[in-house]
């Protein structure tokens, strides 16, 4: 334990360990992937069981399923606009996958797969590949005009084109680092204050009373982290929708 050794170890929570015995170890199935599987199962269960009744007046679970559907649909519809409907399942999957990853990570002993840069970058790379493929499929060679706005003076091309290319290529980086940094920061903070609780609690007679302070901070932090978990999923979905808008309409 970190507290027993007298030092704060906030990062070991992000260590990958294989699960499911020797078979899991053989295929490199870590606890991160187990949580992904859990999130995917919960998302599918939410929609499938929620909508099982197909009630005109929805129950609680159906309301939740419909609310998530309409929330993401609202994002896609308002951001992508005309022709955005076919990208809705993609954005919905992204939003729910990130949201459930963030939220599941807040449970004790759970692992937050969105706190791994490789995972968030993988997701951002999927987005990047999708928007580029969509833009190329819809506009063909005209897509490259995206990097040089019409009407700009030609002599500015040596400046504008590299800037636009870099900004386009930096999309997956900013998308992934934002989510990764938010989740890591939140979990490190939680871990640090949780360690304070244990350390101060061991300080003799006054210890338990002083330890309530970092405990109170952690209570507040959990509320804040729930907000961040939702907000980051929202940001991920809305940025994806904006990129899809650019891909469909080219500015």
């Amino acid at each position: 334990m970190a507290a027993e050794s007298g030092s704060i170890d906030a990062l070991s929570q992000f260590q990958l360990t294989p699960v499911f015995g020797p078979i899991g170890a053989a295929v490199g199935f870590s606890q991160s992937n187990a949580h992904m599987l859990l999130a995917a199962g919960l998302i599918t269960a939410l929609i499938m069981f929620g909508m099982a009744a197909r009630a005109v007046v929805p129950g609680r679970l159906q309301s939740l399923a419909e609310a998530s559907y309409e929330f993401v649909y609202g994002i896609v519809d308002s951001q992508v606009g005309h022709g955005g409907k076919r990208f809705f399942p993609f954005v919905f999957t992204l939003f729910m996958f990130v949201l459930f990853g963030n939220m599941l990570g807040l449970f004790p002993y759970a692992f937050t797969y969105t706190s791994h840069l490789a995972v968030t970058f993988g997701l951002a790379l999927i987005v990047f590949v999708v928007i580029t493929a969509v833009a190329l499929a819809l506009h063909g060679r005209k897509f490259f005009g995206y990097f040089f706005p019409e009407g700009a003076p030609l002599w500015l091309a040596p400046i504008i084109v590299p800037v636009e290319v870099v900004s386009y290529l930096s999309r997956p980086v900013s998308l992934s680092v934002r989510l990764f940094a938010n989740m890591v920061a939140g979990h490190v903070l939680l871990k640090v204050f949780a360690t304070f609780v244990v350390m101060l609690g061991a300080l003799g007679a006054v210890g338990p009373f002083v330890a309530t302070l970092p405990l109170a901070v952690n209570v507040l932090l959990i509320g804040f982290e729930i907000l961040v978990a939702f907000l980051q999923a929202y940001v991920f979905a809305i940025l994806t929708s904006i990129y899809l808008h650019d891909a469909v309409h080219l500015h």
């Binding site: 990958l16 295929v27 490199g28 199935f29 870590s30 991160s32 992937n33 992904m36 599987l37 995917a40 999957t93 996958f97 797969y113 791994h116 490789a118 995972v119 993988g122 997701l123 999927i126």
Partner: peptide, 10 residues
């Protein structure tokens, strides 16, 4: 492996 499983699960 995490990324490969991510792609599969996603």
């Amino acid at each position: 492996a995490q990324i490969v499983w991510l792609l599969i699960i996603f």
